[in-house]
């Protein structure tokens, strides 16, 4: 069940590389966990840590205060690759609440929305503009479907309508699905008696 998401105001942090795959977001050797918790340390692990476990001082994610940078501005085709839901779990635990890119992989989008991490797709022009002003706070208003920053014109974005409603209201998707049980049972009867 995801936490409700309505309005978020935060600075952004930019990882401009294209095709950041979920193996980068959380390497496979951290997938032997049986819970969702505590994966923030594994987020972008190999970008952030040396072989001996010491922090790489040059890594941007080690230089920022995650509490102040809740929005990840990422290069094209973000979170492609493996379907691991550990990717949004790790990003959330690190501190991110939203990801903005010009293209975001399908399975990740679905996984992120189910966990309260908002994936937003914008045009290249908007992306470039956001990237050019990293310290300017950005407001993501999910109710209004808008990104606002400074004096600039607000930018509209689209989120799949049901997922959006679930985020706004904190709706429990599994509960919603279960409410369809009579139809599911009827479907099964119709097929399994033929």
């Amino acid at each position: 069940m995801s936490e409700p998401f309505q309005v978020l105001t935060s600075k952004t942090v930019t990882l401009s590389q294209a095709n950041i795959d979920t193996d980068q977001i959380i390497p496979a050797r951290f997938l032997t966990t049986t819970t969702r918790e505590g994966l923030g340390k594994a987020a972008f692990h190999d970008w952030r840590y040396e072989e001996d476990g010491s922090e790489k001082p040059e890594a941007i994610l080690n230089r920022i205060d995650p509490g102040e940078h809740r929005i990840l501005l990422a290069g094209k085709n973000f979170a492609c690759g493996s379907s691991r839901e550990h990717a949004p779990w790790a990003l959330l635990d690190y501190g991110f609440k939203a990801v903005i890119s010009t293209e975001i992989a399908d399975i990740f989008t679905s996984n992120a929305l189910k966990n309260g991490l908002l994936p937003i797709v914008v045009s290249q022009a908007v992306w470039d503009d956001l990237a050019s002003q990293p310290d300017q706070p950005v407001t993501i208003d999910l109710q209004a479907n808008q990104i606002q920053r400074g004096n600039a014109e607000p930018v509209s974005f689209g989120v799949e309508s049901f997922a959006r409603q679930c985020l706004l209201d904190g709706v429990d998707t599994l509960g919603w699905l279960q409410a369809n049980m009579p139809e599911i049972e009827a479907y099964e009867r119709s097929r399994e008696t033929v």
Binding site: I107, S110, N111, K114, N180, M181
Partner: peptide
């Protein structure tokens, strides 16, 4: 392929929410 939350959905209902 599906994520772990969806694995839970299928375990519980044998269905998925899909567009």
């Amino acid at each position: 392929g599906i994520g772990t939350s969806e694995v839970g959905h299928v375990l519980a209902t044998q269905c998925l929410l899909q567009r």
